[in-house]
């Protein structure tokens, strides 16, 4: 029996939230006339989360599957495992702490079935302290501007994907935040819908001002990787052109000043020419090194890059 919809919920030390979460999802998907599976990924909880999970009803409405990690690997790894294991044609990911509302799921499904590849939740009315909301707004602006995928709320875990797209997107380290950006290689049709958001019941969040630096640095990485994946030789070319230009300018200055009363400057400019010339050469070699890495790995990355080339009349799930 094929599964239409997989709901992936990473949980970590959520023993009190498991049952309410299950009930809420069960009620939310009951009216949908689809085969639904519910994949809980236990990220190495130290409390009774797994015990509670295995006590959930097994009547197949929805079908419950529990992926138990050996230890704590982090949220991105948990989502990856859920995505790898899920069998549905449409995948929905959400947080295990009841901040997302499962009643939004049917609307996500509608959007995917209307032909979108990726549906992103937008917590328009966030129930968090401003010190958490503000940095996240700044980060979202920055992410949209750098990656060219302007999404209002990258941090919202409630997202829906066409399975064959998400299963081929490489996620690494804390990249689940950047899934829409990473998927931009495939030029997906993205929809954004406003979702309900509930205040956190317990526990604390780590999203603060210090994260801005990390997001900023990660953005440079993402941008590089995206450019690189599109054109492996071009990823450093902008920077290389810039340093080449500086080299030439310094060289011209050195020559021009050589026979004037500024002869001393000529030496300084010659030095600068040498420095930037060396840098240009260094960057060219690095670009070639990148090409080498790409050549060695391009086979395993091909399925991801192929996403951009899809048959015109592809089937919508």
């Amino acid at each position: 029996m094929s599964v239409d919809l997989s709901i992936i919920v990473p949980v970590y030390n959520e023993e009190d939230n498991v049952l309410p979460m299950y009930e809420a999802i069960r009620n939310a998907v009951a009216p949908i006339d689809r085969t639904v599976e519910l994949v809980f990924v236990d990220d190495g909880s130290r409390d009774r989360t797994v015990e509670r999970l295995s006590q959930l009803p097994r009547d197949g409405k929805p079908k419950v599957r529990i992926v138990k990690f050996r230890r704590n690997y982090g949220q991105t790894q948990a989502m990856m495992a859920g995505i790898d294991v899920a069998e549905g044609k449409v995948l929905v990911t959400m947080d295990g702490d009841l901040q997302n509302d499962p009643r939004d799921i049917p609307r996500f499904l509608e959007q995917i079935e209307a032909g979108h590849d990726l549906v992103v939740g937008w917590r328009k009315d966030r129930k968090d302290h401003w010190s958490r909301v503000l940095p996240s707004k700044v980060a979202n602006r920055l992410i949209g501007w750098v990656t060219g995928v302007p999404i209002k709320d990258n941090g919202c875990s409630l997202k829906a994907y066409r399975a064959d797209l998400i299963k081929r997107i490489p996620l690494y380290s804390e990249m689940h935040r950047f899934i829409p950006a990473m998927s931009s290689l495939a030029r997906p049709k993205i929809a954004e819908i406003v979702v309900r958001h509930h205040p956190r019941m317990h526990g604390s969040s780590k999203y603060g001002f210090s994260r801005i630096y990390k997001v900023f640095v990660d953005l440079i990485s993402i941008r590089t990787v995206l450019t690189f994946a599109r054109a492996p030789l071009l990823w450093l070319s902008g920077l290389t052109m810039l340093t080449l230009l500086l080299t030439l300018m310094a060289a011209v200055a050195a020559v021009v000043f050589a026979d004037t009363s500024y002869a001393g400057s000529s030496v300084v400019f010659a030095g600068v020419t040498l420095l930037f010339g060396a840098l240009t050469l260094f960057l060219i070699f690095l670009a070639l090194l990148g090409q080498l890495i790409w050549g060695a790995r391009s086979k395993s990355l091909a399925p991801f890059v192929d996403l951009a080339v899809r048959p015109a009349g592809r089937e919508v799930p």
């Binding site: 999970l53 295995s54 599957r65 529990i66 992926v67 138990k68 990690f69 050996r70 690997y73 790894q77 948990a78 990856m80 495992a81 790898d84 294991v85 690494y172």
Partner: peptide, 11 residues
């Protein structure tokens, strides 16, 4: 780099 290890899957 999928470095997670699944201990078991409870179906």
């Amino acid at each position: 780099m999928r470095d997670y290890r699944i201990e078991r899957i409870i179906e």
